[in-house]
């Protein structure tokens, strides 16, 4: 199967992104003068630079024999589970407290490893809750509510 060089795609994406940044900054932020530069001058230049670098990367991929080796494959299942687990912590820490947030981040992320079982995950979640309590509440004295009852 003929595969496209990933550098070609990422280079073009970066170039496009830089262009969007420059145009957005130009349209939204004043450029100012050389003496008193506005908030737009630096981002417009930066966007342009990113765009050029991305273009250069894409070109270098075009004129290269063979493909650049990709260090490793994108593991979508792992990535999604880990990212969702961190996001779950973010959403729960304010509204539900430390214990539910820790349980969420631990149990969701644990399943990123295919070897995880329900039992091992539960044990780990409980153990880490205890560790978080001892370390952050007792030892470091952080002010993190353990559990917030909904509506309280």
């Amino acid at each position: 199967m003929h595969k496209i060089d990933p550098d070609l795609i990422s280079g073009m994406l970066v170039a496009l992104f830089g262009l969007i940044v420059a145009i957005y900054a130009f349209n939204h932020y004043p450029m100012g003068t050389l003496r008193r530069m506005g908030p737009g001058m630096f981002p417009v230049g930066l966007g342009g630079l990113i765009s050029c670098l991305g273009g250069a990367l894409a070109l270098s991929a075009l004129f290269r024999r063979g493909h650049v080796a990709i260090p490793f494959r994108f593991e979508s299942r792992t990535a999604v589970l880990v990212i969702v687990s961190v996001a779950a912590f973010a959403l729960l820490i304010r509204s539900a407290g430390l214990v539910p947030a820790v349980i969420a981040v631990v149990s969701l992320s644990a399943f990123a490893d295919k070897a995880a079982t329900l039992r091992s995950t539960l044990v780990l979640a409980v153990a880490l809750c205890a560790l978080a309590y001892v370390l952050f509440r007792l030892a470091l004295g952080l002010n993190l509510p353990l559990l917030i009852w909904p509506g309280a």
Partner: peptide, 11 residues
Amino acid sequence: LFPAVLMFVCI
């Protein structure tokens, strides 16, 4: 180990 690392990073 890694769920613990994630927990530390979050907290």
